[in-house]
Write a protein that binds this DNA or RNA. Sequence first.
DNA 1: CGCCGGAATATTGTTGACAATCGCCAATGG
DNA 2: CCATTGGCGATTGTCAACAATATTCCGGCG
Lengths: 226, 226
Amino acid sequence: MKSMQPKPVVRQSIENRAADSLREFILSGRVRPGTRLTEIALADQIGVARATLRTGLHRLAGEGIVVQIPYTGWQVTELTETDVWELWTLRAGLESLAARLAAQSGDAPSRAAVARAYEALLAACAKERLKQVNACDFALHRSIVEAAGHARLAGQYRLVEQQVRLFIATSNTCVAEGMDDIVAQHRAVAEAVLSGDAEAAARQAWHHNESEGMRLVAWLRRKAGH
Amino acid sequence: MKSMQPKPVVRQSIENRAADSLREFILSGRVRPGTRLTEIALADQIGVARATLRTGLHRLAGEGIVVQIPYTGWQVTELTETDVWELWTLRAGLESLAARLAAQSGDAPSRAAVARAYEALLAACAKERLKQVNACDFALHRSIVEAAGHARLAGQYRLVEQQVRLFIATSNTCVAEGMDDIVAQHRAVAEAVLSGDAEAAARQAWHHNESEGMRLVAWLRRKAGH
DNA sequence: CGCCGGAATATTGTTGACAATCGCCAATGG
DNA sequence: CCATTGGCGATTGTCAACAATATTCCGGCG
């Protein structure tokens, strides 16, 4: 009877809590790319010592979310057209590998998770709720990567995903071109993974991310040409 | 006239120097996997304050070289059979992508660097100096990744490479099965990259790393079976 | 002798104070 | 007027001290 017991205390250092709080804040898009963040202000805002906050910031710098400017401050990462190309090609490469591994050796529970994530995406598209579609889109990608059963791959993918989130939250773009397009692109990947077709899964995962990345790069170019 | 000017002063924070010193120490193989490292001892050894050293350790933890045990100490990462599989599959995936990009769009200087690195590997194999062969092997791989012109890919590859180095430095194994094998495996990759054949480059880079990884996993299994 | 509980020890986690650096602005000199 | 220099303020970088935690050790009891 779990409900008869008090909930276990979650142990997490203040340093890690600070990093998590900062990450959430920055990935929310509420602070613009290039914004200077100072340790004194942030430490005051989240209620920890400055040195504790530094640990968090160093961690986010390692994740590519902030950039350290020595003796000056920290900046929220700005993502250029080249950065977008890099993120989407890297995401394509990592996901392609994950889809291949998931198709080859994903176990029944992880396959079920992929199937559920795909169904959730379909349902969100049917309701045409863009925010929910976006969340389900990420969740499907993630479920495929988790289905690969490869911790390092999942860890590296998470770093890329965070930067993809940062870009989407701060760039005022809509990644997809329509609900039908979203469904079609993800169907090919999901079906290949679920049917165990490793080659097709790898190819479709690559293609989906690559084409999305090229679309975004083109969007950035048009935007820059105003 | 560069020689008419004093050499620029290299600015690097003590925190970063500490991280570099620690990384070099650990990757040298002079400390065994699983060894507990304490902040007090390390800080004393490298001559910085403990809090400064902590920053360095946190950085290495983010790179997967050490593991943080809260309130207890830090440990040099131990790499299991699963870890080896992960490292080599991930390295294969990243290098496959890099080789594809290098073959597609590597510029002339970076291609020349790949060619030089390959020639250096051939020369080292001809002399049968294993330590030099190993260094040239890493250098060739790196040159291909740099030729991709993709900073994030190169950054993520570096993290994998460090852990590969850690494994090799601490595992008492010889990765290759002979000079002829080394040459043959690397020739296929180098030639595909240099000839601009993206598909072949990707395929050969994957195959080389995958087969090497499988060999190591098999070696670990034999070793564990004693 | 083995187990358990409490205390001690050795460390890490957090904090605040001092040292170092950078950027900006004003003053000075050519 | 423009370029250079110096000073100051705002921050970051580093350090040492205190707080918190986990492990080890020791003593007592069954």
